[in-house]
Every structure is written in structure tokens, then in C-alpha cells.
Design a protein around this nucleic acid. Sequence first.
DNA 1: TGATTGATTAACCATACGGTTAAATGTATC
DNA 2: GATACATTTAACCGTATGGTTAATCAATCA
Lengths: 106, 106
Amino acid sequence: MVNQSSMDAIFKALADPTRRSIIERVSSGPLSVEVLSPYYQMSAPALSKHLRVLEEAKLIKRRKESRNVIVSLEPHSLKVLQAWVQKYTKFWNTNFDALDKLLSKK
Amino acid sequence: MVNQSSMDAIFKALADPTRRSIIERVSSGPLSVEVLSPYYQMSAPALSKHLRVLEEAKLIKRRKESRNVIVSLEPHSLKVLQAWVQKYTKFWNTNFDALDKLLSKK
DNA sequence: TGATTGATTAACCATACGGTTAAATGTATC
DNA sequence: GATACATTTAACCGTATGGTTAATCAATCA
């Protein structure tokens, strides 16, 4: 469970600013590709490819609704990611109060 | 603070299983490249490149000690990563108890 | 001093990645 | 039924990535 290649897929998917931005936008609720599209200065196929990468990493789901495609967040992989990160952060979390404050400002 | 390209670097660095494994090994304490090396079926230059990627993402530090190089974890970027993930997980964390249990088993 | 050792840099190679345009696939509308 | 619309697939292109071997650098040892 939670094998190497799926961790690869999750990290790779999130290593692109466009894809992180999509996650950001979709995190408040499902959005159609049509609504999503104008935010990105790239062709429709380029955006579609980004969505595929996110989908294969199980970070989003796509479902067709008449002519449109609705993109929704798939929380599972973010949970997996959180678990990975937590493994390395939980032990010394308390030692970084200054940084915590800094990060919470943004 | 915490700009896009540094997030890119962090995610890209961790998108490779060798590099995540290095983080894993170094997370319990600093290790020399010499000690690290035999775990990986690749040439010394290949390993050195991985270390560079991790270093540029500020996930590790390298310091020279006589002929050896000591690799140590640099917690800052993991904190940044944690903050990013937390943004999307904290709201619905409580809804995934089943998954939580599953993850804690491994 | 010369040889050996630990690690990096340089140059190269195959494959993956992020973008493009053109064509194809549904689905709605006239 | 024809046309238009939303999206994906196919084919292609330049650059990035992860590996290699050969050469270099710095530090120890005989």
C-alpha cells in the first residue's frame, strides 16, 4: 500500500506550478474545465494534459457532464502526501516556532 | 516568501525514489556519502547529482569533513512542504479516519 | 613525492516533460 | 442533418532529467 511509484506520481504532479494552481482552484469546490481554462495562458490540450497528470496521481477526478468536464479534488493522495511529510516533521515540529509564525503570515 | 520556483524545487527533488530514500536515511542523523553510497546501485556521480538536487531544494546540507562529505537533513524545506500540504488537508482531516488507520499500519 | 581514496565536474546519451498545432470525438443547438 | 462547441488524442519539438564513463580535485598515506 502506498508504493514508491504512486509517491513518485504525487510529487511529480505537484512539481509543476500550473498543476499546483489547479489544485488550489479546485480545493474550494469542483470546477469545469471551461471555467478553469481562462486562468492559464496555454492551449486547451496543454491544460488537458496537466489534468491527466493530476488524475493519474489521483489528486483530482474528472467527470463528464453534458459537454463539459467537471474537475474535483480527490483528497486521498493529499492525505498520503501529508502522511509522508508528517513522518519527517512531527518529531521536531515544536522547534521551529519562528518559522511557523513566518509561514502563517502568508 | 516561499515562491513558486522553490516549491517546484522541493516537489521535483522529492519526486525521485532515490532522493526520498536519501531523505529517509538522513532523517535519523547525518551520514557521510561514503556510508550512503553502497545502498544505491548507481555510480558515484549519479548519487552526487541526486545530492545536489536535494541541496538546491534546501532539503539537505553538505559539509566537507577531511576527505568525506557529510550529508545532513535541512528541516526548513520540509516545513515549507508541510505548510503547503496542511493548507489542503486540515479542513477535512477528520473525515478520513479509515484512511488514517490504514496509513498508520504501514 | 607519489599513489590512493572520496567526491565532484564534464561530456555525453536515451527518455520524459511541457508546450505547440491539427485532427478527432462527443454533445448541444439551429 | 449540419454546424458549432468543449475537450481530448495524435504527432511533433526543444529542453530537462537521470544515468553513464572519463577526467579532475583535494586530502591522506606509504
